[in-house]
């Protein structure tokens, strides 16, 4: 069970429930493959640094999860198939990266509770 982190950008023209549904689809796919979801983040609508597919902004989402290695490739295939995804990036977290993600989560939680 390796530790992964995936960031993906959704098309800005989507409506709210389409976005929720897309995010849910990916999450369900992971859970069906026996992944353990650790953290989910929604950065909302952000301006892109450069235009992707003629679009200037996008909805950013972050998934942090633990899963077997061979699940990641088909998972990314799902991203490629879905045309509402502008871009995705999956990163394997080593122990330093995982520790950093841990502290980052704590910081965000503190900010929320404050």
């Amino acid at each position: 069970m390796n530790h992964y982190e995936t960031v993906f950008i959704l098309n800005p023209v989507l409506s709210d429930e389409q976005i929720k549904e897309a995010v849910k689809k990916f999450e369900d796919y992971l859970l069906s493959k026996g992944a353990e979801m650790i953290w989910k983040e929604d950065w909302g609508l952000k301006k892109l640094a450069y235009a992707i597919q003629k679009k200037k902004s996008g909805f950013y989402h972050l998934f942090e999860y633990k899963v077997d290695g061979q699940v990641v490739a088909p998972f990314e295939l799902e991203f490629r198939r879905d045309d509402s995804i502008l871009r995705y990036l999956t990163v394997r977290l080593d122990k330093h990266a995982a520790a950093w993600a841990e502290t980052r989560r704590k910081r965000i939680k503190e900010k929320k509770t404050k």
Binding site: A49, G58, Y60, R87, L89, V91
Partner: peptide, 13 residues
């Protein structure tokens, strides 16, 4: 390079 890939940073600015 990863930040550039997910458009958090520009390639050329």
């Amino acid at each position: 390079k990863r930040a550039r890939h997910i458009a958090l940073m520009p390639y050329v600015a």
